[in-house]
Amino acid sequence: MAVFTEVSQEEAGELARKLGLGELRELRGIQGGIENTNYFLTTEQDGETLEYVLTLFERLTFEQLPFYLHLMKHLALHRIPVPDPHELPGSETKEHPEGRLLHTVCGKPAAVVDRLRGKSELQPTAAHCDHVGDMLARMHLAARDYPRNQPNLRGLAWWNETVPVVLPYMDPAQAALLNAELAFQNHIAAGSAYAALPRGPIHADLFRDNVMFENGRLTGFFDFYFAGVDSWLFDIAVCLNDWCIDLASGAPDEEREQAFLAAYARVRPLAAAERQLLPAMLRAGALRFWVSRLWDFHLPREAAMLKPHDPTHFERVLRQRVAHAR
């Protein structure tokens, strides 16, 4: 999250009233992340203080965004704890009974969702990983009948496009690793085991800072704006590469990893192809975030509150995953 577009009190207040959320009392920019403009939006209605998150989308288009917003609404209706998007009152139709979830602020696509309770757990234990694994499996199953389809926009096709763009910034050893891993992932994607992986809507970015806990209880997943239809195993791998590693070295933490996988499998046991390809998908997840962080670091956009993530972190994770896959 960051602030690329400055939103005035008047514009935010008008949207809050239009959505029936009450009178605006506070608008505060959110620091962190690198994709969209985000604000905490506090309103008052019937003497009650209510809190929401206003997001302006800087890269995603009006055509792409319904997939994400309606997925969140679908999951909320299936009792998965996610930020529930607010519709424009009176916009419901027979085809879309949930109403219009996508709005316009400062000429850009925007959404307002409920703010989740709690805070992110940045030093997770095995117990936290158990909770996340359990809820991720429930989320995958709840989204099986979601009717909209959109690919993972940061998947293999994007890696193939972006690696040549960031290669000029790499030293020879880094460039060799990037090229070798990209070739390996293209090889894996062409195989029959990969084709057999169960698929559906995935979060694709479920890091520690995208999950909330309160008193040790998981209260929600958020920031679905990298979601897409892909293998469920890739979603698992992204989580394992963040929740279940040592941040300093990038090395896997076996206790947390086993807790996560056991909790996930209690809800949805892994298929044979998933067990076979988990090491390769762990490498894929590390490659995806190394490439995207290289791109954001070396080709940054201006924002009022923007701190690019360190790309070398996922270089370390990838090297660890390659070493442990042998």
Rank of each mutant, 00 (worst) to 15 (best):
V3N: 01
S8T: 15
E10K: 15
G13R: 00
G22D: 07
E23S: 15
E26K: 14
R28P: 04
L41C: 02
L41H: 01
T42G: 02
Q45V: 09
D46Y: 12
G47T: 13
L56S: 02
L60Y: 11
T61E: 02
K73R: 15
K73D: 15
H74N: 06
H74M: 09
A76D: 11
R79K: 14
P81G: 10
P83N: 04
P89V: 10
G90H: 12
T93Q: 10
E95Y: 04
T104M: 12
T104A: 13
G107T: 06
K108I: 00
P109D: 06
P109Y: 01
A110R: 03
A111K: 05
G118W: 10
K119D: 09
L122H: 01
L122P: 09
Q123E: 10
H128M: 07
D130R: 15
H131T: 07
R138N: 10
R138D: 09
A142R: 03
A143S: 09
Q150G: 06
L153R: 13
G155Y: 02
W159Q: 11
N160V: 14
E161L: 04
P168T: 09
Y169T: 03
A173N: 12
Q174M: 10
Q174D: 13
L178E: 08
N179T: 15
L182N: 05
L182P: 06
L182C: 10
Q185C: 13
I188A: 12
A196R: 13
I202T: 03
H203N: 01
L206K: 03
F207W: 09
F213A: 13
F213Q: 14
L218S: 12
T219G: 07
T219P: 01
G220Q: 04
G220R: 01
F222E: 04
D223P: 01
V229W: 04
C239Q: 05
C239M: 05
W243A: 05
L247H: 11
L247F: 08
S249I: 03
S249G: 02
P252H: 06
E254D: 08
R256M: 10
R256A: 10
E257T: 14
Q258R: 14
L261G: 00
L261W: 05
R268D: 11
E274H: 00
Q276I: 13
M281E: 14
L282Y: 05
A284L: 09
A284E: 11
F289M: 13
W290D: 00
R293C: 09
L299W: 02
R301K: 13
L306P: 02
K307M: 10
H309W: 00
P311L: 01
H313G: 00
F314Y: 15
F314Q: 13
R319Y: 07
R326C: 13
